[in-house]
Computed example of a mutant assay.
Amino acid sequence: MQSKSEQINTLTEHNDELENYFRNTIIPQLFVDSQLILRKFTPPAMKQFNLKAEHIGQPLANVKENFRFPTILDNIQHVIDSSEILEKEIQTTDRRWYQMNVLPYIVQKNNKTDGVIITFIDITARIRDLKEQEKLIAEHELLMDTIAHDIKNPLTSLSLTIEMLKKLPEKGMAKLPAMLGTAESSLMKMKDIIADLVQNRWQGQRYLAVEELLDLQNILEDVRLTLAAQLQESKAVLEVKIGISEITFARRKLRSILYNLVSNAIKYSSADRIPHVQIKSMEQDGFMVISVSDNGIGIDKQHLNTIFEKYQRVASKAEGNGVGLYLVKQTLEAAGGKVTVTSKLDEGSVFSVFLKLTE
């Protein structure tokens, strides 16, 4: 058994180690005790949140405005009361995003939470890149769909015109057949180009969308980060229950599918209740089935068969171009899968994505 002086020396060594760690870490970190008193912080935290030496020993409530995050005290108290780790994305008023991890500081002797250690990891660049990538993909897909759609009609008209010209009398029009032949040849070439474009579009050739073994949880994390601002603004609750997680699929395509469905669930929420979006996965008859359910405005039964058509929209209350669900359906069907929907007006909808599992 250690003597009193030995115990003091041991505590001093441990304190020196902790002080050394806090001085040298490159991550903004705080230590707050069970009375919500700020006890320590790292130099990066001092710089990022404009903390000063005199703030040590003060109630965190006195300096909470430095963090520009209104519910930080409630979050810390929740971890102290529950001894559960809390992970949350927060945005400060300077429009930077952080992964905030609040970890309970548990005293082993009595197994009680005596405070929390809070770390802040800057994820601004990641969220910005994800948003930019989704935006570019959506714009490119919409552009290609629009081009194919808009060119089809004039091409059809040109075909009919050529057929009519072929039936005209040839008297005094000796060069007309040759001209028609050239026009017809050009027309066929344009048709072939469009056919190749559309075929390659859904055969995974664009963007080098190579299939790989994916973890659904990681894809959902990317989607959640991309939609962080919408989730925060709407105060939506996002619940995830993963039954099966691994799937061989193109990362960009799966992310785009889930992004569209989760984004719609938030976008078409009901004005009289907080949005609740639940994502589940399970295995069924050789497919991974991912369901995205919400408690939103729902879809009228008469529209259930048309919502996957291009330029069709569920409602006019939110921004959109009516292409998202069309792209979801086309992508899945091209990969041997499908998407289904069930819905009740003013109760919500459930979209189920079927992805074929490989051996």
Rank of each mutant, 00 (worst) to 15 (best):
E17N: 12
G181D: 12
L180S: 03
E233I: 13
K191Y: 08
L231G: 01
P59S: 04
L155N: 02
P43M: 01
L165Q: 04
N153R: 15
L168T: 09
L168Y: 09
D346Y: 09
A335H: 06
S82Y: 03
V240M: 07
K109Y: 15
S349D: 05
K301A: 09
V223H: 03
V240C: 02
L213W: 08
Y98S: 01
H55W: 04
D215L: 15
I194L: 13
S34L: 10
R96S: 07
Y207W: 13
F41I: 03
G181Q: 12
I85W: 06
L238I: 09
L73Q: 07
V262E: 05
M100C: 07
A335G: 09
A138D: 09
L227A: 04
N50E: 14
S83G: 04
I279M: 02
F351N: 02
Q58Y: 08
G286W: 03
N218G: 05
I307K: 03
G181N: 14
L143P: 04
L38C: 12
H78P: 07
E84V: 02
L220N: 00
T156Y: 14
E211C: 05
T248A: 14
V350R: 06
G337E: 08
D81A: 10
G181R: 11
I266Y: 04
N101I: 14
P44F: 02
K40Q: 13
T248L: 12
T331S: 14
I26R: 13
L214T: 00
I26H: 10
T226G: 03
I290A: 00
A183P: 02
L165V: 05
A61H: 12
V102Y: 01
T93V: 13
I26A: 11
V341Y: 00
K280D: 11
L214G: 06
S281Y: 06
I37M: 08
K253A: 11
L60T: 03
P275H: 05
A236S: 10
Y105A: 14
